[in-house]
Amino acid sequence: MWFRVEPGRGVPIYIQIMDQIRRSVAGGILAPGEQLPSVRDLALQLAINPNTISKAYQELEHEGVVYTLRGRGTFVSGQASALSERDRLKRLDESVEKLLVEAYHLRCTSGEVLGAVKKKIKEMDGSKEGADDDRQ
C-alpha cells in the first residue's frame, strides 16, 4: 500500500492520509477486512509524526471507514460509511460545489461537467471489478 504525503500543499497531512485511504477504499484497492499498516511502520516509511497517522486513523474510525483492534491493528471496515444520511449528502454537496467552482474558472459547460462525471464513474466501477477479479 503506497501512500504519498506532500507537506507543501497547505492541506494538513492527516487529511491527506485520510483522503488517500478513503479513495483506496472507494476504488476497491483496499478491501473490507484488510489491515492497514501500523502507525509506527507508516510513520517511519513516510517520515512523518506518528501522532498524525494516529489522528488520521482515529478520524476514519469515527467515520466508520476503519476499525481498530487493540494490540492487533487497524482494519478496513465491512460496512458502508457510518455517517448519518444528512452528513453524507452535505459532504457530497460540498465536493460538488468545489467541482463546479473549478469548472466555472475553467469555463466548462454543464454538459462537459456531467460528461466528465459519468466517465469517471464508469472508470472507477471498472477498476473495482478488476480489483475484485485480482483478489479471486
Binding site: P7, G8, I13, L44, L46, N49, P50
Partner: peptide, 27 residues
C-alpha cells in the same frame, strides 16, 4: 527523529528553516 518519537515521552524541539520537513514531523 520519528524513531525517537516512538520512545517513551520523548520531546523534540527543533529550530529550522526547512519548513516543509518541519511540517512532516511537527505537532
Amino acid at each position: 527523529l520519528v524513531e525517537e518519537m516512538a520512545g517513551e515521552e520523548r520531546t523534540i524541539l527543533v529550530s529550522s528553516h526547512q519548513i516543509q520537513d518541519m511540517e512532516r514531523i511537527a505537532d
